[in-house]
Structure formats: C-alpha cells, structure tokens
C-alpha cells in the first residue's frame, strides 16, 4: 500500500547562532491510509511545529513532505491554499471556531472557502452532524456551546470536505475527561468505520490509547514507536504508553 504522507529527514530550526532552537531535528516517517497515528512528547518537543510543517503553515528548514505523491514545498498560491483547505482537515486544541458564525456556518466555512458542490456538501453535512450528534446546536453561536460541543462542531468542519488526512493538535487539551472520551470515541469511530486517516498530537495518554500507532518525540527527534497489536485491549495499550512515557521522563532527566 502507498503511504498517504511521506516525511523525509525533516528539519525546522528557529533563530540563528547561539539562540538557535532545533524544534525538529531530522524526522522521517510515513502515514498510511486508514491509520490513526498519535504523536506524543513533552511540551516544547516540537509536536506543533511538525504539524504546522505538514499543514504547510510554516516552511521547514530542510527535508521533504510528500502528500499523495505531491511535494508540498513546491506548492504555491491557489494550489497551496487548496492543499491546506481541501486535502487537510485540522482540529485545534482551542477549537478555532469563529464566534460570530453559527455552528452550521462554521462547519460550512471550508466549503465557502474552497468550493465543492452544494449537493455533495449537504449530503456529507447531514451524515456528519448526525454522527457527531450536533444537529440540535447547529443554529447556536459558539458562546452558547459547551467545550465538547464546540470540538464536535470543529470536527465536523475538519471533515466536511472529506480530506485525505485529518490533523489534530491536542484536540482534547481543553476538554474534561468525559468530553475528551466522547470525542475520542467519535474520532476512532470515523477512523474504523469510514477509514479516515488521522494524525493526532497529544500528551494525554488516555486519548493516545485510541490510536493504532504512536510515535514519541523528544528534542525534535523520534525517540520511540508503539504499535497496537491486533486485538489488543485499549487498557493494555494504555499501560504500555504509560511505560514509555515513564522512560521518556527518566531519559530526559538523565540527560539533564
């Protein structure tokens, strides 16, 4: 099977000379269609930078990112905007809903930005809102919604154009554990039932345990990788994640 996303020796350095930060320092990996890949790491380890590079929001210092066979460093103008909006769905920690648009209008923003046929849009809109259980709040403004509702609206927005890859940056970061679990159930359901490919950054082990594979990064480098075994219980996977994290914590304190 061809990978949907190929990342090769990616580097991103901030600043120059003494004050240089190597936010990403040579990362190589692939994501395959239908995968639910988690990326974990301590704060400042370069997770957001990696995601932003993939989303083409920032330019990497070196290395390549290939999406569906397209080298995204070579995209520009309209193609680039289209790549960001159509090939990619983005779920943010702070939801990034526009506060003066209703839920429905927020969900349909990508359609209005990047086009897509009305009919296709409305069919998908119906299915998504049904699945995410947000039909009742479509006409509310974000200030009238709970955190969980906001994130489900944001999820619908990320999925409305049926993107090849969904990027999530700490999607449960601003949710309580009950809402976090509900959201993760929905996300993994999308992954299992509709084959959505998801790349999720998190430092919440509970959320990570929904993934099928997890990469741990530290100081801009891949440090370890875990893969959920066939038929493995989520609880068991969760325990394994905790073990790696303990190692990661120990490792870094040894270095210091």
């Amino acid at each position: 099977m061809e990978p949907i996303l190929k990342i090769d020796s990616l580097k991103k350095y901030y600043g120059k000379g003494d004050s240089q930060t190597k936010a990403i320092d040579g990362i190589t990996f692939e994501v395959f269609p239908g995968e639910f890949l988690g990326i974990m790491g301590a704060s400042g380890s370069g997770k957001s930078t990696l995601l932003n590079c993939i989303a083409a929001v920032i330019k990497p210092t070196s290395g390549s990112i290939e999406m569906d066979g397209k080298e995204i460093g070579k995209l520009s103008g309209k193609k680039l905007a289209e790549y960001r909006g159509k090939d990619m769905g983005y779920l943010f920690q702070n939801f990034e809903l526009i506060d003066n648009l209703t839920g429905k209008e927020n969900i349909l923003l990508p359609v209005s930005l990047h086009g897509g046929t009305e009919k296709e849009g409305s069919e998908r809109f119906g299915k998504l809102t049904e699945y995410l259980e947000i039909k009742d709040i479509l006409n509310k403004f974000p200030s009238q919604m709970s955190g969980g509702e906001k994130q489900r609206i944001a999820a619908a927005r990320a999925l409305i154009l049926n993107p090849g890859l969904i990027l999530c940056d700490e999607p449960t970061g601003a949710l309580d554990s009950k809402n976090a679990k509900a959201l993760m159930t929905k996300l993994s359901g999308l992954n299992n039932e509709q084959g959505a490919t998801i790349l999720m950054v998190t430092h919440d082990s509970n959320a990570a345990s929904f993934c099928s594979r997890i990469m741990f990064i530290q100081d801009g480098k891949i440090f370890h990788e875990l893969r959920k075994e066939d038929g493995e219980d989520r609880k068991d996977f969760y325990d394994r994640i905790l073990k790696v994290l303990a190692q990661l914590g120990g490792g870094s304190s040894n270095v210091l």
Partner: peptide, 18 residues
C-alpha cells in the same frame, strides 16, 4: 479586535486575496 477570526480563517487555508 476580531483578528482572531481572521487567524482562524488563515488556519483553515484562506489566502490573503480571499
């Protein structure tokens, strides 16, 4: 004051001309 909204649009892939 509402620059937040524009930033969100940028994150959703809106370019400057739009």
């Amino acid at each position: 004051r509402t620059s937040r909204r524009y930033r969100t649009l940028v994150k959703l892939g809106a370019d400057h001309p739009t």
